[in-house]
Design a protein around this nucleic acid. Structure first.
Length: 807
RNA sequence: GGGCGCUUAGCUCAGUUGGGAGAGCACCAGCUCGACAAGCUGGGGGUCACUGGUUCGAGCCCAGUAGCGCCCACCA
């Protein structure tokens, strides 16, 4: 064994060994009927592991390794998501670089091309999980586009249809002109953009008002949409426009006569307080239009250009149309002013093209009914989000959930199981129907749209187990236990798994959802490729090792945003190195590990290990990881190495001492294994056969045999501190003196303390205690045990002061 | 605009029901003792963002202020 532990090579070797020996398989170490199931949030096939994945993977792996050791039938389900729009986006951009396009290729060839792309790049992600030491059951990899999974998606869609929750409707949607598809609100990202606010004059159609007003000025950032105006709206309480409401104005450029209406959704503070209403191209206007029964004019097409309804501007880009409209206004003196205006504009999260709000015919899933059982489950805490604040957020999200637009005008994804006959009847069925359910026509054409990619993700916990087939695995492993993910996925994924799980299986898919921290760059900014603040976890692993990376990530995780701290990773590396070296000390001559403590320090370390076991179990059960790794660090460095190993050094030649030491080391390695799987397994292998791997060894049982000794070293440690600070030895007896001599080595170590400073410190403490106890209100009102503790402390300090003063 | 969170040592962060301000790193000093490209020991360093309040007692509870971050959001 080398003095410096180097993870490289060691970690890869164990990752291969564990997998080859089948130790990642579900149920491998089960010793009872209890199951523990986590499914990994399926990463996008196109993506690469980022720091969030690494933290999430570490948390899940810790829980899985822990439960595996506890004898649970453990399943950690891996897989990928086809990531509809993201994947299509990547391939489409490739095609653009190659000088061709999706449309040139045609749908079939394009989908073929996507599959090719996945062959090349898609399968690298699991390799990244392997590098982290993630003990997923890799043999069970699932993909949302596998045949069996497609079957599940189709069957689920038909089920929703049969429930009467699916409907087709024209609504305003977020339209991405690049991908030419609708996307959900959750896929829109708002970006600050510099725009111009144009103030345009709309004259009254029937001449000036009695008070002399001859028109209304409205403000818009998109002059081209003036062509689609069907009204001008003002706030009902706005005195400025009291006379105008009910009259008509003339829309510029198209010279259309439209009414002035009153609606309280108009903000009288903004612009002129008058809003032009364009139901075809603005969500608020759409709502107002529907309320007032206004026509819905569409002047911009799916490609983002002006359409035929725009007359002479048909085919123009919006920028061109803006110019033409502005020129028209200017010529006629209707352009009041233009001012620069910075505001948030919705863009497609994948291609960052400006979103075009568009009225479009889409399939929707009504949410009123399906959300109900999920809401009840959250309120009853049959599912709990951690931390609690996220639980509240999840509930609010379900309370406010809008109907779900499930159709996408993409080519990559699950095509809707809906067929239309020439009469326009829609038949929803799977397997594909032979005839129209309404008229019996055999001429059926399948709806070209595909499902929102999150539709298939929503089925992940049971579709991966074989649903809709009633497989043994589904019966055994559903419902699962824990799901762990990032905050922004709560509405997209978590809540949807909960309601679909309740719908299909009648039970929630898991009982706990861990919403892990977001890891920010070390300067506090968001980690992102475009900002150049991203950090590749594989680089961190390459530099410090997977164990250190895991330790560091767990150490960092705490509140919802944490800064990446390399120091935390370095701490993990030091812990692995320390463990390695104390093992070198204890394994110099091999004996059979056996806990037969005869000495005080031996009972003490066993008690300390057991106390830490309890502490760690408690923290992990609460999904609180950061303090637990700190406790393990303290146990290893301070208790195990600095006190226990030092105390037994003089007796290391005795086989019995080493046997107990190795038994203690075994327990230490077991506690550390879920955090640092590789180095612990590597050390374990130094004194165990291949037949007994640490990864599947039983987690230490509670062992209260030495609990009384947990505090036994307190006096020795206090004496050591006094000696080191002052050079004065407090009298000890027997074992305590022996341990003191072994650890402190008073005869060989020069004291660097300062007796005067120690005296002063003690006097200050005593004075403080006396002051508190002299306070009648404190003595009267504080809890009795607190008062007693103060008295004890004061007495102890006085005794120590006596000893010091005598020297 | 709404929600959530943060503000504690030079840096990154812990501080569980209110009762002696902590860790790791960095820095300074001493030691080298049977493992530790290091380790061990000790030390310096903090108005716990600010202002009020509750309390015998507040980093912790309450109200407010300021700054920062993330998420969400249809002010044209």
């Amino acid at each position: 064994m080398e003095p410096l532990y180097t993870p490289h090579g060691v970690e890869e070797r164990w990752q291969r060994t564990w997998e080859q020996e089948g130790l990642y398989r579900a149920g491998v170490a089960r010793r009872g009927d209890e199951t523990f199931v986590i499914c990994v949030p399926p990463p996008n096939v196109t993506g690469a592991l980022h720091m969030g994945h690494a933290l999430n993977g570490t948390i899940q792996d810790l829980l899985v390794r822990w439960h595996r050791m506890r004898g649970f039938d453990t399943l950690w389900q891996p897989g990928y998501d086809h990531a509809g729009i993201s994947t299509q986006n990547v391939v489409e951009k490739q095609l653009v670089r190659e000088g061709t396009s999706r449309k040139e290729l045609g749908r079939e060839a394009f989908v073929e091309r996507v599959w090719q792309h996945l062959e090349e790049t898609g399968r690298t992600i699991m390799g990244q999980y392997r590098s982290l030491g993630a003990s997923l059951d890799y043999e069970r990899e699932r993909f949302t586009m596998d045949d069996a999974y497609i079957e599940a998606v189709m069957r689920f869609f038909v089920r929703l249809w049969e429930r009467g929750w699916l409907y087709r409707a024209n609504r305003i949607v977020n339209w991405c002109p690049f991908h030419e598809t609708a996307i959900s609100d959750l896929e829109v990202v708002h970006e600050e953009t510099d725009d111009a606010l144009t103030y345009a004059r709309y004259p009254f159609a029937d001449g000036p008002l009695p008070d002399g007003g001859d028109g209304i000025t409205v403000a818009t950032v998109r002059p081209a949409t003036i062509l689609g105006d069907v009204a001008v709206a003002v706030h009902p309480g706005d005195e400025r426009y009291r006379e105008a409401v009910g009259r008509d104005v003339i829309v510029p450029f198209v010279e259309r006569r439209v009414p002035v209406i009153a609606d309280e959704r108009v903000d009288p503070e903004f612009g002129t307080g008058a809003l032009k209403i364009t139901p075809g191209h603005d969500p608020t206007d759409f709502e107002i239009g529907r309320t007032h029964g206004l026509p819905e004019l569409i002047v911009i097409g799916p490609d983002g250009r002006m359409n035929d309804a725009a007359g002479e501007l048909a085919g123009a880009t919006q920028a061109e149309a803006d110019e033409r409209v502005l020129a028209w206004l200017k010529e006629r003196g209707r352009l009041e002013k233009r001012e620069s205006y910075r505001h948030a504009v919705g863009t497609c999260e994948r291609c960052h093209t400006r979103i075009e709000p568009l009225i479009s015919l889409q399939w929707w899933c009504a949410m009123e009914e399906p959300r109900r059982p999920a809401l009840a489950a959250l309120r009853d805490r049959r599912v709990r989000y951690h931390p609690e604040s996220q639980h509240q957020f999840a509930i609010r999200s379900l309370e406010e959930i809008p109907d779900w637009n499930v159709s996408r005008q993409l080519w990559w994804g699950h095509q809707l199981p809906i067929w239309y006959c020439p009469d326009g009847h829609a038949t929803c069925a799977w397997p594909p129907p032979d005839a129209c359910a309404d008229c019996g026509s055999g001429e059926l054409e399948r709806d070209p749209d595909v499902l929102d990619t999150w539709f298939s993700s929503a089925l992940w916990p049971y579709a991966t187990l074989g649903w809709p087939e009633q497989t043994e695995e589904l019966a055994r492993y559903y419902p699962g236990d824990v799901n762990s993910t990032a905050r922004e996925i709560i509405r997209l994924w978590e809540n949807r798994m909960i309601w679909t799980g309740l719908e299909v299986m009648g039970e929630v898919p898991f009982t706990d959802v861990i919403i892990h921290s977001t890891i920010l760059a070390s300067d506090g900014r968001r980690m992102s490729k475009s900002l150049g603040t991203g950090l590749d976890p594989l680089d961190v692993i390459a530099e410090h090792g997977a164990d250190a990376t895991r330790y560091g990530l767990l150490k960092m995780s705490s509140t919802q945003d944490v800064r990446f701290a390399e120091g935390a990773i370095e701490e993990g590396r030091k812990l692995a190195n320390k463990l390695w070296n104390v093992a070198r000390l204890l394994l110099q001559e091999r004996v059979e590990p056996a806990a037969r403590p005869t000495e005080l320090e031996e009972r003490w370390i066993l008690a300390r290990i057991d106390a830490t076991r309890a502490e760690v179990e408690d923290a992990w059960a609460r999904f609180d990881f950061s303090p637990s790794v700190g406790a393990l660090y303290h146990l290893t460095f301070d208790d195990f190495c600095d006190w226990y190993a030092e105390a037994i050094k003089p007796r290391l030649g005795e086989a019995a001492t080493r046997a107990t030491a190795l038994a203690a080391l075994e327990r230490l390695l077991q506690l550390l294994h879920p955090v640092l799987p590789h180095v612990t397994e590597e050390i374990w292998a130094q004194f165990h056969d291949a037949g007994e791997r640490l990864i599947v060894t039983p987690w230490p049982e509670p062992d209260g045999a030495y609990a009384a000794d947990a505090a036994a070293l307190d006096r020795v440690q206090a004496a050591a501190a006094t000696f080191r600070r002052s050079g004065v030895q407090v009298a000890l007896e027997g074992d305590e003196q022996r341990i003191f001599d072994a650890v402190v080595r008073p005869d060989r170590v020069k004291v660097n303390g300062n007796p005067a400073a120690e005296l002063e410190r003690l006097r200050r403490e005593i004075e403080r205690g006396e002051r508190m106890l002299a306070n009648e209100k404190f003595v009267a009102k504080a809890k009795p045990e607190v008062v007693q503790a103060e008295r004890d402390k004061l007495a102890r300090n006085r005794r120590e002061l006596d000893v010091l003063e005598q020297h």
